[in-house]
Design a protein around this nucleic acid. Structure first.
Length: 426
RNA sequence: GGGCAGUUAGCCAAGUGGCCAAAGGCGACUGACUGUAAAUCAGUUGGGGACACCCCUUCGGAGGUUCGAAUCCUUCACUGCCCA
């Protein structure tokens, strides 16, 4: 670990831009720093963890973190980084989302430490109380429309035909007000965020300077990019969430394990607490023994443990080994049930497999492996379907009781790594 | 309220009376090669079937013209832009 927070974030490649004076501030003072999180869904996803972990890093250097759930700003919608106007969420939905993500936010920070305990707040607590006329007089007066129009988030939308609503246009005022409020209440002097937040953050610092004559700072992180140009944090089945009910620990583990070689070292720096020496060691391993995928494994292990804990990690690893190792016949019923607990499953009455058995094409559809019989048939013809890890050659194959592992399960697989467990019911 | 433009498959986008289950691109799926990577190459991508052949449904909704409509007409809805 470096001996100063800024250097630490710097060598990890996190910092995209910062206001003048930030390195000195972080070196000399114990700073109260905040980062906001939008309640656009009922769970955070992997992308959110970057600024969140960064907040935890800052706390380890003695700074005091504040995580802000955007229960108030979420009512408006941040235009930053969005190419079109967003649908407003209902108030109930936002409140529910806030309650969900607050639990997740709390997981990363230390609230017990005496010297610099973390704080968790919801900006609905102060924003919803605002009175429009007062707000326009006290806050709005400090911003010129010219200034606001010059912000990237607004400018890019003005260039498009559909424009930007007054609602979203006003967003930066609310976020600026947040900063001011936290400055007044907690002495918060630094705001962090993704690089798309630069405009909102500088607006807040500007407001503090004008209203209080105070000096506040901003620092933004790189948006996470992928070498193949696709969006980080998405898989074929959607976003990778922190909530285990939305993304199972097994899938979560697999998400990290499948990281592109070109990105893996970057992610280790971004997301994990491995030291510089450890990461440099993995860089060597990647160059010399790429097929071992040591860095990928380390990344997947660290992230799964951090988010889901030791037990879930052990299960995810065990499942991964069994699934990609192949030998299913040697497992007992309890092991199968355990390993495949992470994998999509369906239930089928045992009697359907009696005699001739259940046509595989139909089983693929009822189990959700294929969306239609045509697709199922195609998948088999292409050689992409496996029953108990054995490739199926015959489109007309049926699955019968002889295929049942331990008399209770049938394991379907599509392609290299899409497993589904069929459970037989009495 | 007025004028104009638009609404085609997961997305973008061609098609403007039959040869249209609908070009092309992206995405996605499968295979080969591999390291559960990348790149590359090949195939597939509305549904159903007795599956190299047939049937059904789909081009914003409803109705109509026609032997025949994604394509023409009427009407409704929605979206965008401009004017008030």
């Amino acid at each position: 670990m470096s001996n100063n927070a800024f250097e630490e974030l710097q060598w990890r490649g996190l910092i995209f831009d910062y206001m003048e004076g930030v390195p000195e501030l972080l070196a000399k003072e114990k700073v109260t720093v905040y980062n906001g999180f939008d309640p656009t869904a009922d769970s955070l996803h992997v992308g959110h963890t970057l600024p969140l972990i960064a907040l935890a890093r800052l706390q380890r250097f003695g700074h005091t973190p504040i995580a802000v759930a955007g229960g108030g700003t979420g009512m408006i919608g941040d235009p930053s980084g969005k190419s079109s106007e967003r649908q407003l969420l209902s108030r109930e939905q936002i409140e529910y989302n806030v309650s969900c993500i607050q639990k997740q936010l709390a997981h990363f920070l230390d609230f017990e430490v005496k010297s610099n305990p973390a704080t968790l707040v919801n900006n609905a607590d102060w924003l919803l109380k605002l009175n429009l006329v007062d707000f326009l007089r006290e806050i709005g007066k400090h911003f010129t429309v010219n200034y606001m129009l010059a912000k990237d988030s607004v400018k890019s939308r003005l260039e498009r035909e559909e424009g930007i609503s007054f609602t979203e246009f006003s967003y930066m005022l609310l976020q600026s007000y947040d900063f001011l409020h936290l400055y007044d209440t907690f002495g918060c002097k630094l705001q962090t965020g993704g690089s798309d937040q630069w405009g909102n953050i500088t607006a807040g610092a500007e407001l503090i300077r004008r209203v209080r004559g105070g000096q506040a700072y901003g620092m933004v992180y790189h948006l996470i990019t992928k070498a193949d140009g696709t969006k980080f944090g998405k898989t074929e089945s959607g976003s990778v969430w922190l909530d285990p009910n939305k993304t199972s620990p097994y899938r979560f583990y697999q998400f990290w394990l499948n990281t592109d070689d070109r990105d893996v070292i970057k992610y280790l720096k971004y997301f994990t607490f491995f030291t510089r020496e450890e990461i440099e060691g993995m860089e060597v391993s990647l160059a010399e023994r790429p097929e071992q995928r040591e860095p990928h494994r380390a990344l997947a292990r660290a992230m799964t443990q951090m988010i889901h804990g030791e037990t879930a990690l052990a299960r995810a690893e065990q499942a991964s080994q069994a699934l990609f190792g192949g030998e299913l016949e040697n497992l007992n019923a309890a092991e199968i049930a355990d390993i495949f607990s992470e994998v999509p499953a369906c239930e089928v009455p045992r009697h359907q497999l009696e005699g001739e058995g259940y046509p595989l094409v139909d089983l693929l559809v009822t189990s959700g492996v294929a969306r239609s019989k045509g697709e199922a048939r195609r998948n088999i013809q292409e050689g992409g379907i496996y029953v108990n890890n054995r490739r199926v050659e015959d489109v007309n194959r049926a699955v019968n009781l002889q295929d049942a592992l331990q008399g209770q399960f049938v394991v379907l697989r599509k392609g290299r790594k899409n497993y589904t467990l069929v459970r037989l019911l009495e």
